[in-house]
Computed example of a mutant assay.
Amino acid sequence: MPDSDVPDPAATAASASATPAQDPLALESQVCFALSAAARAMVAVYRPVLEPLRLTHPQYLVMLALWQHGDLSMTSIAALVHLDPGTVTPLVKRLESTGYVTRRRDADDARVMLVSLTAEGAALRSVAEGIPAQVVARTGLTLDELADVRRSVTRVVEAGRDAGVL
């Protein structure tokens, strides 16, 4: 006897193209679902590219911030990578244990923890310069398509910031 709570995959597939137009709560019509799925897919694209560098995707974001800006406070890193400071602390500690960064207290304000690249972390930048091309190749999208996605998603982030939710 079929379970009436479980949707029939054949029926769901057959009506998938019509469902979003008819049902504003259809999963396929939700921007949040598309963005969430896209984020997971993109992290999956990066994972095998970053593994040889001993980096996770969030650690890579921290390294990008440091390569671009130099020494940063933990608070600045959190703001730049759009993560909670409590999430950044363990990321930076793992980067420190890998030998890519060091942490130290600011001489002028001991409450501020500064993060700096080590020589090894700075040298990793030249290897990481090949990552964007690998990502383009792995996605199968063109540079223009990826730039369009980045612009659209950036507008979503800015709208959230303007609305006071970020």
Rank of each mutant, 00 (worst) to 15 (best):
P2W: 04
P2L: 09
D3M: 05
S4N: 10
S4P: 15
D5Q: 13
A10G: 12
A14Y: 08
S15L: 13
A21Q: 07
A21K: 09
L25H: 15
L27K: 07
V31Y: 12
C32L: 15
F33E: 09
A34Y: 05
L35D: 08
A37T: 07
A39Y: 13
M42Y: 14
V43K: 14
A44V: 11
Y46K: 07
V49C: 10
E51G: 03
P52T: 05
P52C: 07
R54F: 12
R54V: 10
H57Y: 15
P58G: 09
Q59G: 12
Y60Q: 14
Y60K: 08
Y60E: 01
L61F: 11
M63D: 06
L64R: 14
A65V: 00
Q68D: 04
H69T: 04
G70T: 05
T75W: 11
A78V: 07
L80Y: 04
L80D: 03
H82P: 02
L83I: 09
P85Q: 00
T87R: 14
V92K: 08
K93W: 01
K93L: 13
E96M: 09
S97H: 09
T98Y: 06
G99W: 03
Y100E: 01
Y100Q: 08
T102Y: 14
R103W: 07
R103P: 02
A110S: 09
V112Q: 01
L114M: 07
G121K: 02
G121I: 00
R125I: 05
S126I: 05
S126D: 12
G130L: 05
I131V: 14
I131Q: 08
I131N: 01
A133T: 06
A133M: 02
A133C: 05
Q134T: 04
Q134P: 01
Q134F: 00
A137W: 00
A137I: 01
A137R: 05
G140N: 00
L141H: 12
T142C: 00
R151M: 10
V153D: 06
R155A: 15
V156F: 03
E158R: 15
G160V: 03
A163L: 15
